[in-house]
């Protein structure tokens, strides 16, 4: 149980990163590749927030009732992840628009059939 409680979040985020990397490397379909990038982004965000966590910590928000900063989790990774999520969706939309243009031009999304991209 102590193994679970100290490592399960790391296991989750690194599994997401590795699965996303596998999809990016292996799958030939462009939209599938973008799905892999999305999975990797979620894993990295989860990792950053996990690093900032403290045992039995409280959320970094003060209220009238709770005004002492002891035991508060680290607010900096949360702020970074907050902006990273919004950037992620914008970049994702840009990548998908490129995929749409590729489909218009070549009539397929399969990277093996697009001659200019074959390896």
């Amino acid at each position: 149980m102590s193994f679970l409680s100290s490592y399960i979040h790391y296991i989750g985020c690194f599994s997401l990163i590795l699965i996303g990397l596998y999809v990016v490397l292996v799958k030939p379909n462009l939209i599938k590749v973008i799905i892999g990038i999305n999975l990797m982004g979620t894993g990295v965000n989860l990792f950053l927030v996990t690093v900032g966590y403290i045992h039995a910590g409280t959320a970094p928000i003060f209220s009238e009732a709770a005004q002492q900063p002891e035991g508060m989790v680290d607010p900096v990774p949360q702020a970074l992840v907050l902006t990273a999520i919004v950037i992620g969706v914008a970049v994702l939309a840009l990548a998908l628009s490129l995929a749409i243009r590729v489909y218009d031009h070549y009539g397929t999304l399969d990277l093996r059939k697009i001659k200019a991209l074959r390896w």
């Binding site: 970094p60 900063p69 508060m72 607010p75 970074l80 902006t83």
Partner: peptide, 29 residues
Amino acid sequence: GRRYASRGLEENKAGNIVASVVVNYRGFD
């Protein structure tokens, strides 16, 4: 992180420290 959490309330008078970091301390980002 410790510094923002312990001083953020009196410096910015904003309850949400994440908002304080996003907009003020790390506003350039």
